[in-house]
């Protein structure tokens, strides 16, 4: 009788790409729920459209590359990319915007560089930046946050019409539905010479940061902490990023509280929390050593503050993540942990 010889390890851990990716999806649910509540059905339309297109694109390009379809389609990585991108898109974005973004993410940023595990840049953020650079008008019109139950929110049918045929329901005035985001308002108003206190009186602001946005950030924080707790995401990256962002914004707030927004506003606004826990922690494109992850996170936090405060865009998480993606291999090279037993240099 012949026994099958199996090399070690004989006991396998539970982690696999699919398992980690599914966890990321679960962790996004609370934040997405908050987004749906405040911004309407468009968030869900974007999510489903992006997931569908992402799976189709992934299947098509896997077939072209002669790779096993079932293995790669079941690892959920395409769906995670699609969700990360869809959450970052304006909820009433026209359908072609989502399609172009997903194709840029899956086909160009992921598969042209060799597929999962080989891409140097975060695919979802490439998709987002391609759209942000190419279609600035469509990308900067976000719905005004309402509760989904209120009379002046769009129904699912009206949302579908707006997304797929561009027809805005006639019962709303054109500017009753969409407006600038809180970070956008802050940026333009500060540019006009108003003080932070005056800007804060605008109705787009809530208790801590943007109204509606702060609850989504809370949801993503809860999901993100769970990801860190289950070790699906490294704690160093969000800690480094949010810590740096907090320290720098505190310094500037201390210098002149009327010219620079308070640290809690920066932490709870835009994509800071979402980016720190879900985007920057992408295991493929982030730094991989413990010290390197802190530096990588800190770099993102610094760049986010610089772009928000002094750059050309209201939020800078996507650009910051992509810039630090370029730096990640070098950071890894200089922060390699000492091999156990080896001499200190």
């Amino acid at each position: 009788m012949r026994f099958r010889t199996v090399t070690s390890p004989h006991i396998l851990g539970e982690t696999s790409v699919g398992r980690i990716m599914r966890r990321v999806l679960y962790a996004m649910v609370p934040g997405i729920a908050a987004l749906v509540w405040f911004f309407g059905w468009g968030v869900l339309v974007n999510l489903s459209l992006a997931s569908g297109i992402a799976l189709l694109a992934e299947a098509a390009i896997l077939a072209v590359r002669n790779k096993p379809l079932a293995l790669y389609l079941n690892d959920y990585s395409a769906v995670v990319t699609a969700w990360l991108l869809a959450v970052a898109l304006p909820p009433l974005a026209p359908w072609w915007l989502t399609v172009i973004g997903v194709l840029a993410a899956i086909v160009v940023a992921k598969h042209l560089y060799g597929g999962l595990g080989y891409n140097p840049f975060n695919p979802a953020m490439i998709g987002y930046v391609v759209l942000l650079i190419s279609f600035p008008r469509e990308m900067s019109t976000w719905p005004i946050p309402h509760g989904i139950d209120q009379a002046h929110a769009m129904t699912l049918w009206e949302t579908l019409q707006a997304v797929f045929s561009g027809v805005q329901p006639a019962r709303f005035a054109p500017d009753a539905l969409t407006g600038a985001t809180p970070l956008d308002v802050l940026r333009t108003q500060l540019g006009l010479g108003l003080t932070v206190t005056e800007v804060r009186n605008s109705p787009v602001f809530g208790i801590v940061a943007g109204s509606g946005w702060e609850w989504a950030a809370l949801g993503f924080l809860a999901g993100g902490l769970w990801l860190v707790y289950t070790k699906a995401a490294a704690w160093q990256i969000p800690a480094g990023m949010l810590g740096t962002l907090a320290v720098i914004s505190t310094i500037f707030y201390g210098i002149d509280p009327q010219r620079y927004a308070p640290p809690w506003f920066h932490l709870w606004s835009g994509a800071a929390i979402f980016g720190a826990f879900f985007i920057a922690t992408d295991p493929v494109t982030a730094s991989t050593t413990p010290r390197g992850r802190l530096i990588y996170g800190a770099g993102i936090g610094l760049l986010v503050y610089l772009i928000r405060g002094f750059g050309g865009y209201p939020d800078g998480v996507a650009f910051a993540v992509l810039l630090m993606n370029i730096a990640a291999p070098t950071i890894d090279l200089y922060t390699r942990p000492r091999v156990f037993g080896a001499h200190r240099e």
Partner: peptide, 15 residues
Amino acid sequence: YRGFLLAILPPGAFI
């Protein structure tokens, strides 16, 4: 056609 700005900008040249 609405125009795909990325193609005109420098990254479009590289891609």
